[in-house]
């Protein structure tokens, strides 16, 4: 899915990164704990989370995430959105639970990362 399609599918409000809405996302991960994301995210991925602090943007930077959706109607403070904007990261807020968001995206064709650790080759993407 493109990020624009994800925004539509979730009925989300984009907070920053509008210039990158055309990028493609091929997998998603739901977590409120960053190390879980660091363990299970592959390339071209998005993160759905209820955490809205600067660490989310930093984690996104480490993983080269394409976009982050803040669920349950959460909106990060302006300085965090500023950091994301500077990094070219698309962020959005969704007025739905994490479960509902995941269901909608799955229906839309998005899948999770496999529950195994990437081999060296896969990690190289």
């Amino acid at each position: 899915m493109t990020i624009a399609e994800i925004v539509k599918c979730l009925d989300a409000r984009v907070l920053c990164g509008e210039e990158n809405l055309g990028q493609r996302v091929t997998s998603a991960c739901c977590s409120d704990l960053m190390s879980d994301a660091l363990a299970f995210i592959h390339e071209n991925a998005m993160l759905l989370t209820g955490i809205t602090n600067a660490h989310v943007v930093r984690t996104a930077g480490i993983l080269d995430l394409k976009c982050v959706a803040f669920v349950r109607g959460k909106v990060p403070p302006p300085d965090v959105i500023g950091m994301a904007r500077e990094a070219g990261l698309v962020t959005m807020t969704v007025n739905k639970t994490m479960f509902t968001c995941a269901g909608l995206l799955y229906e839309g064709g998005l899948r999770g990362a496999p529950m195994c650790w990437p081999s060296r080759d896969e990690a190289a993407g």
Binding site: D32, M34, A39, T59
Partner: peptide, 18 residues
């Protein structure tokens, strides 16, 4: 730490696996 998104207990295993 948990409220900030840490404490999954995955850090050391993540390092080892990577």
């Amino acid at each position: 730490a948990r409220n900030m998104g840490f404490g999954a207990g995955m850090g050391l295993p993540n390092m080892k696996r990577n």
